[in-house]
């Protein structure tokens, strides 16, 4: 309504004093009552300048404190031309920090705008009524003993996270699929199918338990470990007579032929001739350990 009124006045004034070309100023004010501490007031000032008139932009107000209770928090300036005239729109946002003890009228001071020809335009001051937000003497709270009853905090609003969760799942899934594909491509675990290293394992066991394997039972255990390693390497059970064919299939161990043959002779003596002592004399545990580490080394070189 006020806009309409201002427009009519403007149109009338333009119509009646078009020849004067005097700068015209109109202010669109906010309501003049019902403000509290920290509230914001917006004023829109419209300045219509005739041809040849120009606003001195240095005279525009700047954001910042005006006095101890008022602050300009924001200044928006826009300009557009309408025919010969130029229309400046100035949006001023004020914030009041006044703490009134009773409803009170305060005044925002007027603004002086300068034109290039040193003439001044005055934006009128604006007064509004501000009120306290609490009673002057608060009744003492029985529970806290405080003079002021603080309002309870608002409960934190719940954030809607469904979209984010779905997005997280989708991206995690696609990352996983990508990782699996990459692992497959580069033959990482578990797609590596790296051949087992039975001799390396047997060698590790023998080396770590060399002291424990010195007895009769331990010697048998050591031989069994080596037998199982041969079995795994060959993919079948390797008996003493199979040693040549085993070496034919695994030429990497050919260098150790004599040691392997001695091992099988000792094993045959220990297991099938009931003569563990003699077998230990023939090939003591230390030699088993040495042979197993050589086998392990040969196996690692080959793979």
């Amino acid at each position: 309504m006020r806009w309409l009124l201002a427009a009519i006045v403007l149109v009338l004034s333009v119509a009646t004093s078009a020849a004067a070309r005097a700068p015209q100023i109109s202010v669109d004010e906010p309501r003049a009552f019902g403000y509290f501490l920290g509230d914001v007031l917006s004023r829109r000032i419209t300045v219509r300048l005739g041809a040849g008139q120009e606003l001195d932009s240095a005279s525009l107000p700047r954001p910042g404190p005006l006095n101890y209770w008022l602050e300009i928090s924001r200044v928006d300036h826009a300009e557009k031309s309408e025919g010969d005239a130029t229309v400046h729109t100035l949006d001023l946002t004020y914030q009041t920090f006044y703490t009134p003890l009773d409803p009170r009228r305060l005044t925002i001071p007027g603004v002086k705008l300068k034109l290039q020809d040193d003439s001044e335009l005055t934006v009128p001051e604006f007064s509004f009524i501000t009120s306290p937000i609490r009673q002057l003497f608060a009744s003492a709270s029985q529970s806290t003993g405080s003079a002021v009853d603080l309002q309870a905090d608002l409960p934190a609003p719940r954030l809607m996270t469904g979209t984010e969760r779905t997005a997280l799942l989708v991206s995690a899934l696609s990352a996983l699929i990508g990782l699996i594909g990459l692992a497959w491509h580069y033959a990482w675990w578990p797609f590596n199918k790296r051949p087992a290293r039975p001799f390396t394992e047997a060698s590790r066991y023998l080396r770590l338990n060399a002291a424990k394997l010195d007895g009769v039972g331990g010697y048998r255990d050591a031989l069994l470990r080596l037998h199982r390693a041969f079995d795994v390497a060959a993919g079948r059970r390797v008996l003493a007579d199979d040693v040549p064919s085993f070496l034919g299939q695994h030429p990497e161990f050919e260098r150790l032929r004599s040691g392997i043959e001695r091992l099988f002779v000792a094993s045959r003596r220990a297991f099938f001739a009931n003569d563990v002592e003699e077998a230990r004399g023939e090939m003591p545990v230390s030699e088993l350990v040495a042979l197993s580490s050589e086998l392990g080394a040969a196996e690692r070189r080959a793979s």
């Binding site: 037998h227 199982r228 079948r236 059970r237 094993s267 297991f271």
Partner: peptide
């Protein structure tokens, strides 16, 4: 049989 049963 001889490929699977462990000996000794």
């Amino acid at each position: 049989l001889f490929a699977r049963v462990p000996a000794p």
